[in-house]
Design a protein around this nucleic acid. Structure first.
Length: 209
DNA sequence: TAGTAGCT
DNA sequence: TTGA
């Protein structure tokens, strides 16, 4: 069991409306969540989607929950099946607990996107706008290697700023930041030993509707 | 531990 | 362009 106090740090660091909770999960909580996510990956193996422009994404991903994020030549969307045809595994309780602590007044998340960043993986600047409802924040959990997180505004060409996210950090992307551009520029390979085989696992929890 | 960016 |  993860202690609630373990997940509540001091004041969040706020960058461009992104609320960053440094060290929200203590190492023991990180291990528990990662263990649960490795089980999700066993049931629903990681895959690298194709962008609508025909490029293979460097990030490998899968999902848990009713809906999972997917991309191919037809575009970005949420689907109710893994590419293998099976339903997505349910979202682990350890993960739902984090949502509950940070967003007690929000409905339960319907999607937990699991992104795995190996050495050299990146994710370009983008908006999370494939959901049908933007009323609720997106919650991100970082596990494993450090990642250079880039944040902008709602305009594609606006100013951006970056911060290194570390294992155990939680980012709440809501309010003014809900439709703000963001991405991962670089992974500091080998900076954490949490993930077996190395790399970074990022979880993004969302109300999709 | 280039870069807590930015341009095309 | 969830990319280079």
């Amino acid at each position: 069991m993860v202690n609630k106090t373990e997940k509540i740090p001091g004041k969040p660091l706020c960058v461009a409306g992104f609320r960053i909770f440094r060290g929200a999960l203590v190492p023991r909580a990180q291990s528990r969540v990662l263990g649960d996510i490795l089980q999700v990956i066993e049931q629903a193996p990681l895959f690298s989607p194709m962008t609508p422009y025909g490029r293979k994404m460097s990030v490998r991903m899968t999902s848990a929950g009713r809906l999972g994020w997917y991309s191919d030549r037809s575009g970005y969307r949420y689907v109710d099946r893994h590419p293998s045809g099976t339903s997505w595994p349910s979202i682990p309780d350890s993960v739902l607990e984090i949502w509950q602590v940070f967003l007690p007044d929000a409905p339960q998340p319907e999607s937990c996107l699991v992104n795995y960043y190996g050495e050299g993986a990146r994710m370009g600047l983008h908006q999370d706008r494939d959901e049908g409802d933007f009323s609720f924040p997106v919650l991100s959990v970082s596990l494993g290697d450090d990642a250079l997180f880039r944040m902008g505004g709602t305009a594609r060409r606006g100013k951006t700023s970056s911060i290194w996210l570390k294992s155990g950090d939680v980012v709440v992307i809501g309010g003014a930041a809900r439709l703000a551009y963001h991405g991962i520029d670089r992974i500091r390979s080998g900076s954490s030993s949490l993930v077996p085989g190395g790399g970074r696992v990022n979880l993004t929890l969302r109300v999709v509707r």
